[in-house]
Amino acid sequence: MAHTNDHPGEQAAADPIRLLEIRDTPLSVDEVFRAVGDAAAGGTALFVGTVRNHDGGADVDTLGYSCHPTAEAEMRRIAEKVAAEYPVRALAAIHRVGDLEIGDLAVVVAVSCPHRGEAFDACRKLIDDLKHEVPIWKHQQFADGTEEWVGSC
């Protein structure tokens, strides 16, 4: 049975942005997943970015994130763009700032859509655009004593 786009559940929700936040406390995958729950969504895609123990061939000892005061507004702009481009039922994104340990969650994003392909595509667009456009900076300190700042997370 072919699906039709005439059903309201096949369309984007009127206000799909459920959670957008930058915080200095630990992130929760469950919180983000719950935020994008929607009875009309047949697919939910979730991405979790964690702090790894290496970068560019060097061992990472510590890592910290900081952001510009406009970072949350930029997150909203990107979320609105994704919601306009895909039939998003619900969208959520949270990013951590401050000092993080290896294995900590740095970012969690999720998108629910009527179908899985749309959810995957929208989630990838959301995380890729957040990574490239939101003014969040990563400060890495390496095991050899060197350090590096990386622009837009």
Rank of each mutant, 00 (worst) to 15 (best):
L46I: 15
R34M: 09
H68M: 11
V109D: 10
C153V: 08
A119F: 01
I102S: 05
L27Y: 13
K125F: 07
G117Y: 10
G42P: 11
F142Y: 15
R124H: 14
M75K: 11
H139K: 11
A39I: 13
V97F: 11
R116C: 05
S112W: 00
A90Y: 04
A73E: 15
A73L: 13
A110M: 01
A90W: 02
D144C: 03
D128T: 11
F47L: 13
G42M: 07
D38C: 07
E74L: 11
S28D: 13
H54L: 08
V32A: 03
Y86H: 13
D38E: 10
D24I: 03
L100D: 06
G117E: 14
E118D: 14
D15W: 07
V150S: 14
P87W: 03
W137Y: 13
T146L: 00
D61Q: 15
I17R: 04
T62I: 07
G37E: 15
M1T: 10
E31F: 01
V97G: 06
G151D: 15
V97A: 07
Y65W: 08
T62R: 12
V111Q: 02
V82M: 09
A40G: 13
E10P: 04
D121T: 09
V48P: 09
V29T: 14
E80I: 01
D6N: 10
L91Q: 03
T4S: 15
T62H: 12
S112Y: 02
M1F: 10
R116W: 00
K125C: 09
Q140F: 04
D104M: 07
A106P: 10
D38R: 06
T4C: 07
V134Y: 00
E31D: 14
D129N: 04
R124W: 01
G151I: 03
S66P: 04
V150L: 15
A40I: 08
Y86T: 01
D6M: 11
T44G: 10
S66K: 10
L20N: 08
R34W: 03
S152L: 04
Q140N: 07
D38V: 04
E74G: 12
F47Y: 15
T146I: 05
Q11I: 06
H68Q: 04
H139D: 10
A84D: 12
V48F: 10
C123S: 05
A122Q: 04
R89W: 09
A83K: 06
A84V: 05
V97Q: 11
N5T: 11
E21D: 15
R34D: 15
A106L: 07
D99N: 05
M1W: 06
I136F: 06
A93E: 09
